[in-house]
Amino acid sequence: MWRRRAGRYGFNVFCVAAFVFLLAPILVIVPLSFNAEPYFTFTEGMLRLDPEAYSLRWYRSVVEDQEWSRALLNSLVIGSAATLLATTLGTLAALGLSSPAMPGRALITALLISPMVTPIIIVAVGVFFFYSSLGLGQTHAGLILAHAALGAPFVVITVTATLAGFDRSLLRAAASLGAGPLRRFFRIQLPLISPGVFSGGLFAFAASFDEVVVVLFMGGLEQRTIPRQMWSGIREEISPAILAVAVFLIIFAVAALITVDWLRRRSTTQGP
């Protein structure tokens, strides 16, 4: 009996350690971003909880910095446009893929999902050469197209998963009551699958919002996004200002996660 209890105890300790490994690196950023000194580590004052050792100076420097605000604007513009494109095309494709009559489903699905698993460096290099030859290098349009391709698989996956729980007899019922195909889609199907569409869109936005390698290769100074700015921050002039930005990104991540979780629960409780 004691052996089993020891085993259980060891298992729990291991799991707690694993969760610490997962979360501690992210959490450690938060207090450090309030560091009054330009260091990446805890100062003695911080450990003594001396209020003098904490400050908002890095947040202030980020908010006042023109480059960061332009990066935020770029990220938002590129992210929203790419999300709109990916969500529209991805939802349509998921509707087609969920139809029992869809020919060649496995192959086409594999093709549509492929941007998600292709090494990002290959995507970036390929897109850089190809788009530059079309005159789309160093443009917002080029980045939007590339990011939409990278985000679309997420939409296809989430919407297909939502459609799997969709009761198609509702469509037949609507048809028998005289609703045309468009009306059936917009009044019946879309509202019911909207949680899946919305989370897919959020995934696509997050994918673009976090993408750095394509921007690194293809974007110019005018297309610097937040991750691109962080990349320079890490590689060139290390300043705790990037920790302040990191905290902002962590908040975004947690908000996105909670939203997707809420949408998922909504779609499973409402579904048939």
Binding site: L23, P25, I26, V28, F40, D210, M230, L249, A253, I258
Partner: peptide, 21 residues
């Protein structure tokens, strides 16, 4: 959800964290 927090957190943030640590 605790497993999903790192999943959603920017790759650059997580890499920065490891540099800090």
């Amino acid at each position: 959800l605790m497993v999903l927090v790192p999943f959603w957190t920017s790759l650059l943030v997580r890499t920065t964290s490891w540099i800090v640590l």
